[in-house]
Design a binder for these strands. Structure first.
Lengths: 350, 350
DNA sequence: ATATAATATGAGAACGTCAACAATTGAAAC
DNA sequence: GTTTCAATTGTTGACGTTCTCATATTATAT
C-alpha cells in the first residue's frame, strides 16, 4: 500500500518534504544538495525534481544550528557617514558574500562607553558570528574581553593584543606624501593630525611625517602640528587655528581627506589660494578629493584589499582552527592632483 | 542521592546546562530569561546566578529556528561608495538594532543581471530574513518574484507593485529648488537629470523642475535637460556637453550632489564662476556639498527618517501579519549655501 | 474544610539540518 | 559461489530553544 504523502503547502518545504515527494530518505536529499559523491544519478534527478516542484529553499539557520557555523562575520565600524568605513563595509561585504558569508555590521558611535560597546559585541556573539573584524578603535576592556572568546578576530585599526592586524602602510604613505612636498621645496609643512590622544593610525601618519622631515634635514616643529580630529570641521578649525596663531606654512599634510577638504574651505575663505599659496595633500583616496576644487592630492589607501584580506584570513582561521597571528600592511599610493605646487619664493620670503 | 552534574566546559553553556546547575528544568530557565511572570523570585535568582556562573549566552540561531523569526532584515542597495546608500544603511542598521534586529546588506552592482539579482535575493531568503527593504532599482522579474514570497517588502526607490513605498518628497523638493532659482531671476536653468530611461526618482525630480517652470510661466526647453547619470563624472561631462552645444544657462539644478560637484569642477575648469556666473543646486544634502568650494546649496533628503520608518513599518507588518500598502513621503528641505546668487544682468544680456 | 482559581514548575516534542553509524545493494575478485 | 570492497541508502539522534500540555503547589473564597 502506497504511503499517503501529505505536504503542508502553507509552510515552505523542508528536506523532509522533498524526501517524501521523491520517495527517498531526507538524508539522501541532503546528500544530493551537498554534492555527496555516493548518490545514484537517477536518485539525484528525482530529488532535484522534487526540490523544484516544491520550491525548496535550504534553511541556513537550521544548518547553522547543526553545524555550529553561522556563515556570518561581525564587523565593527564607526558610523558609515564616514566614507572610509562605508568603503570598508562595501569591500568586506562583497568579499564575504563571495564565500557565501554574510556580514553583520555594528556601528559604534563616537565616544560610546565600554558598556555600550560590550552590548554591541554581545549582539554579534548571540548571533554566533564565526569571526569578527574590528575596524574602529574599541575600549581596551572590550578587546580584553574578546580574548576569552574563541572566535577569530582581526583588527584593521589599533592593533589588538593577541590578534592579527591588517591595514595599510600608513607610515610609508605619510612619508611619501611629505617627501613629495619637500621635493617641491616646502619646508614649513603643517600637519593636521587627527585626534589626541593619538590612535595607532594617527601615530603612524605622524611618524611618517617626522621621518620625511628628518631624512630631508628639516627640523621638526611642534607648532606645525594640530590635533583637532578627523572631520571636515576639524580641518577647517585646524587651519583657522594655525592662521590665528600666526604660524607660517606653505603646505599642509592632512591626516585624511575630510580634514583636507575642511582645510581647503578655510583657506578659500581666507583668500589663500591652492596650490599657489599653499599646497595640500590628504589621506584616503576616495572620490571626495577627486572632485574638490582644486582636485586634492592624496595618499590612496588600499581599503578594498584590506577588507578582502581580512575576510579571507578570518575564514582561513575559521576552517583551520589555528590562530597564527599575522600583521599585514598593504602599500599606499601617492595620487598627485592639482592641490600641490612648487614653493613660490615670494611666500617663503614673506 | 544527589545527581551528578556534568557540564562540558569546552562548549558554550546552553539553557540545559544552566538548568542543571540551578537544579531546575530548562523550561524554567527559559521562563526566567524571557521574563515570564510565573516564576518564584528565589528560583529566578538561582537561575540568574547559574547563568552568570556559566557565562550563559542565548543562541539566537536556535531561537530563530524554533520561533521562525530570524530577527534579520534584508536590505538591497547599490554599492556603498555612493554615500546616499551608505547613509541609508547607517540609518536602517541603527533603527533595526534598536529593535534587536540585525541587517543583512546586499549590494547590487550597477547593471547586474536579473539572474544575479535573484541569486542575491535567494542569499537573503535562505537566511530567513523577516522582511526586506529594497533601496535600489531591481529588475521587474525580481520584484515580480517577490510577490510570491510571504515576507513584507518595502521599497524606497522605484515603487514595487503590491508593496509599500517610503521615500522623500522629491517632486516637491525639486520644485522648491527650481523655484528658488527662478526667484533669483534665473530663467535658463539646466537640469542634469540622472539616467535615461528615467528611474522613478529621476522622474520625480524632473517633474518638480517642470512644475516650477510652468508655475513661473517659463517655457520648458528640452535642450536644457541632460541625461548622463548619477556620478560626478556625469555632472562633469554633462556641463561640458551643454557648453559644447552652446546652450545658454545661468543656473543648474543637478539631480544629486555628486552630479553637482562634478558640474562645479567642469565650470571651474572653464573659468565659469559660481555663483557669479552660474548658480547651482544639488540634491541629497550630505556632507559632500557642505564642504565644496563654494559650499553647495542642496535639497536635503530625510534619509534617516526614511530608513527608520522603513524598519518600523516592516517590523509592524512582521508582527501584525497584515500587509496594508502605504505610501509615505517625507518632506525634503532646501538648504541654501553660497552656490546660488541673483542673476547678473550682464550674463542674461550676453 | 473543601472547592476554585491562580501561581509555579516540568515533560516531551518540534523547528530543519546534518553527522555518525548501520544496512543494503551490486560488482569485481578469488 | 562465496568473499570483499565500494557504492548507495536509511536510521537515529542531536544542535539549543520554545511551544503545548500536564502536573504540582499555593492562595482565596465558600
Amino acid at each position: 500500500m502506497k504511503k499517503n504523502i501529505i505536504i503542508d503547502s502553507d509552510n515552505p518545504a523542508s528536506q523532509v518534504d522533498v524526501a517524501k515527494l521523491a520517495g527517498v530518505s531526507d538524508m539522501t536529499v541532503h546528500r544530493v544538495l551537498s554534492n555527496h559523491p555516493y548518490v545514484r544519478e537517477s536518485t539525484r534527478r528525482k530529488v532535484l525534481e522534487a526540490c523544484s516542484a516544491l520550491n525548496y529553499r535550504p534553511n541556513l539557520l537550521a544548518s547553522s544550528l547543526r553545524t555550529k557555523k553561522s556563515y556570518a562575520l561581525g564587523l565593527i565600524v564607526a558610523p558609515l557617514k564616514v566614507t572610509y568605513f562605508a568603503r570598508l563595509v562595501d569591500s568586506v561585504e562583497v568579499a564575504a558574500s563571495d564565500f557565501s558569508y554574510h556580514t553583520i555590521v555594528v556601528q559604534l558611535q563616537k565616544g560610546s562607553s565600554a558598556k555600550k560597546q560590550k552590548e554591541e559585541l554581545e549582539f554579534l556573539l548571540q548571533r554566533q558570528i564565526d569571526g569578527l573584524i574590528v575596524a574602529t578603535v574599541v575600549d581596551p576592556e572590550v578587546s580584553e574581553y574578546l580574548l576569552s572568546e574563541s572566535i577569530p578576530v582581526i583588527s584593521t585599526e589599533d592593533p589588538i593584543k593577541g590578534f592579527s592586524w591588517i591595514g595599510s602602510a600608513d607610515l610609508q604613505g605619510a612619508y611619501e606624501a611629505v617627501s613629495h612636498l619637500i621635493r617641491l621645496g616646502h619646508k614649513k609643512i603643517a600637519h593636521l593630525a587627527g585626534n589626541y590622544p593619538l590612535s595607532y593610525t594617527s601615530k603612524q601618519r605622524l611618524e611618517g611625517y617626522k621621518h620625511a622631515l628628518t631624512d630631508a634635514g628639516i627640523d621638526f616643529s611642534q607648532e606645525l602640528i594640530v590635533h583637532e580630529g578627523w572631520t571636515q570641521e576639524d580641518g577647517y578649525s585646524g587651519v583657522l587655528k594655525l592662521l590665528d596663531n600666526g604660524i607660517k606654512f606653505s603646505a599642509i599634510f592632512a591626516a585624511n581627506d575630510y580634514v583636507a577638504v575642511g582645510a581647503m574651505l578655510a583657506l578659500y575663505e581666507k583668500g589663500i589660494k591652492i596650490p599657489d599659496d599653499v599646497s595640500i595633500i590628504g589621506f584616503a583616496g576616495d572620490s571626495l578629493g577627486q572632485w574638490s576644487i582644486p582636485p586634492l592630492s592624496t595618499v590612496y589607501q588600499p581599503i578594498e584589499e584590506v577588507g578582502r584580506e581580512a575576510v579571507e584570513l578570518i575564514l582561513k582561521q575559521c576552517n583551520s582552527g589555528r590562530k597564527k597571528q599575522v600583521k599585514i600592511s598593504y602599500p599606499t599610493k601617492l595620487i598627485l592632483r592639482s592641490s600641490c605646487a612648487n614653493l613660490r619664493f615670494h611666500i617663503e620670503n614673506a
